[in-house]
C-alpha cells in the first residue's frame, strides 16, 4: 500500500546537522537550513521510505504517514 505523508517532524534541538538525512534522501526532500539543521523543504516529494528517520544518529526525525504508526519500518 502506498503511504501518504502527513508530516516530517524535525526536532531542531536534537539535530546536530550531520547531513546524513539530506544526503541519502531518495526524494531530495530535505535540505540544511541557515542554522545547519535539517529542514523538510519539499515534503510533496517524500516517498515515506523512512530512511531519514532510521539513519538519524540523533533520533531527531519522525516521518508520519497515514497508514501506520510512526515507528514502523518498511523492510
Amino acid at each position: 500500500m502506498k503511504k501518504i505523508l502527513k508530516d516530517i517532524r524535525i526536532n531542531k534541538a536534537w539535530c546536530k546537522g550531520c547531513g546524513i538525512c539530506v544526503h541519502f534522501c531518495p526524494g531530495k526532500v530535505l535540505e540544511m537550513d541557515e542554522n545547519d539543521k535539517a529542514n523538510a523543504r519539499y515534503p510533496e516529494l517524500c516517498i515515506c521510505c523512512m530512511m531519514c528517520e532510521l539513519r538519524c544518529p540523533d533520533l531527531a526525525i519522525e516521518v508520519i504517514s497515514d497508514d501506520e504508526s510512526t515507528d514502523e519500518v518498511s523492510s
Binding site: K16, R55, C56, P57
Partner: peptide, 18 residues
C-alpha cells in the same frame, strides 16, 4: 539526556536507533 553526547554524525547513534 538528549541531545546525546555523541558527535554529529556518529554511527553509534544509528546503532542505538536501530
Amino acid at each position: 539526556f538528549f541531545p546525546h553526547l555523541w558527535c554529529p554524525g556518529c554511527g553509534h547513534g544509528i546503532v542505538m536507533n536501530g
